[in-house]
Amino acid sequence: MMALMRVTFLEGVRSRILYGIFLFALFVVFLSIVFANFFMQDLGKVAFDFNISAITLAGLLISASLSVNLIAKDLDKKTIYFVLSRPISRMQYIFGKYLGLLAVFLFAYLVLTLVSGLALVLLKNLHANYFDSFSWLAYLQAVYFDFIKIMVLNAIIVLFGVITTSSFVNLLFTVSIYIMGQSISDVINFLSLERGQDAVTPAIKGVIAGVKYLVPNFEAFDFKVISAHGQLIGWGDFFLFTGYGVVYALLVLCLAALIFQRRELL
């Protein structure tokens, strides 16, 4: 399994797509230096927003380009037979691929955090008086939870990867789940309001009540707004949200492994 993880990681970091995305993220980081000057007081917050958005966007783009092709490519190029002919179970294949992907993301997030960190240091030195609420720890907090989100999202990509052979269909499903996961908490909050009570039929309410347990609550990993103002969450919350992400990702991966066990590869 570790060998498979290593191969996946090497394949990922050698990809030209990854470096294209890095360049794009660098461009967004550069924009933070330009755009921060348009604001009046909370320049630290604006610089934070741009830099964390660059990382988030890069994470999503890598998921949409590298990750969705992961299993599809193996099936397409028939390399999967070569892998599975070795003493490796299908479950190990799924987990090995997934861990390899996480290693690629870990590498990408480390590089991007470092680069965006340099841009923030520069801006902080230029406008020291306007970085009152900025906190490095809060920046790392936002990056960490964005990584947890990516971890969950990639587990979903692996699941759709074993269900469908088309990487495009996988992408469509994953984007749908991502949008649903990002907005589900807003929908639930709206329905709990008085004016939301009559907005939808009881049948739709029933569907939403079921969907909220199926779809990951990505909003739970979005600490960007509060982190931008230097606010940190407690250790209890830290473990709670991390635990939720890890358990959800494991659940989805086990489901993917189960489907993959029974899947006809010919």
């Binding site: 604001f39 958005s53 990002q182 807003d186 929908v187 707004v225």
Partner: peptide, 24 residues
């Protein structure tokens, strides 16, 4: 505001920045 919040997905902070710039 309720629509923007849901549509902003992962980018609420940076979209808030752009909306304020629109006003400025």
């Amino acid at each position: 505001a309720s629509f923007t919040r849901a549509a902003a997905l992962d980018f609420k902070g940076v979209i808030a920045d752009f909306q304020l710039l629109q006003g400025i």
